[in-house]
Nucleic acid binder design. Structure first.
Lengths: 160, 160
DNA sequence: TTTTTTATTGACTATTTTTGACCTTTTGAT
DNA sequence: ATCAAAAGGTCAAAAATAGTCAATAAAAAA
């Protein structure tokens, strides 16, 4: 392990934990690289492999003078359960009917809002249309694609 | 250690907020520049990067003796306005950069929530990945598809 | 051992901020 | 009417950051 990447990952996590400020922190890419004696782009690698949205982080940055990289942890690990549950509920493929049914349930349980439900439905339909009209993918394959997108979307907000 | 630009941005916002006068204020470019010990054109930079119409402000000015710069924070009114605004902001195609920027602005203006922003980002990325890896669509065309999806999603929640 | 995945680097690119030289508009005095 | 002074505007260069991508190298899996 050791690896530079891992060390940097730990370093950032430490900062995030001790930062009283709502587990959010700001760094200078160059500085961080210097403290670890590596090239700056190494930091990008760490961020894109260890601090992705899927993993519960939001990363924003700005170039130019006084540039920065801001990392925010948006996940409380106790939501793991919900996640697993969702994964199983959605499964590998899912029909449009089922999608509607599931979303309806989630909404009633106030796990997602009406607006969020709309967003999800719009996205799924759009994807489906593309798959069908533009590329004529089979219905079954489209369902797989939709299931994947649905899972990703649900994950992203359950973690938030 | 924030940038000059950011400091000036905050200063102006403070003035706008405490100004009882309908969140509108008038400044002298030269004076403000002097307050911050910078060249006057720095003020133009701040205005054009932080107080654009997109971001909800109207800026008017006049040269010559008794010149001034007036800054007004405008409220978002009807749904129609929001929609038109969105349509224009997104346009026909949109880069990932611009997507992030736009969503960030919408979130700051509280037109969408963090969760909604996450949902949208995930959906767009998913669509993009599909387009690229599965069907090898050109980058430009993918941007068009993304713009369409983005507009649909935003429309759906603005109208909700 | 061979293959596949993950890390490391660096050359090249892109964005943002800061500064300054030069331009335009408005007012007011003569 | 003219001109000088007093604003504000534009634009492009320079400086300060961050991002991308592809070639290697190292580690893990098969």
């Amino acid at each position: 392990m050791s690896s530079l990447t891992h060390a940097i990952e730990i370093y950032i996590n430490d900062l995030l934990n001790e930062a009283a400020s709502e587990s959010m922190l700001s760094i200078r890419r160059k500085e961080l690289a210097q403290t670890f004696g590596c090239v700056p782009s190494q930091i990008n690698y760490v961020l894109s492999s260890r601090f992705t949205q899927e993993q519960g982080y939001i990363v924003e940055s700005q170039r130019g003078g006084h540039g920065y990289i801001r990392i925010e942890k948006i996940k409380q690990n106790t939501t793991e359960d919900k996640l697993n549950h969702l994964e199983k509920a959605v499964g590998e493929t899912i029909s449009w009917q089922d999608v509607r049914k599931n979303l309806s349930i989630l909404q009633k349980r106030e796990i997602i809002t009406t607006r969020e439900r709309l967003l999800i439905e719009v996205a799924l339909r759009h994807c489906d249309e593309l798959g069908e009209s533009l590329f004529g993918i089979s219905s079954h394959k489209r369902e797989g694609i939709q299931a994947e997108l649905l899972k990703r979307m649900l994950r992203s907000i359950v973690l938030a």
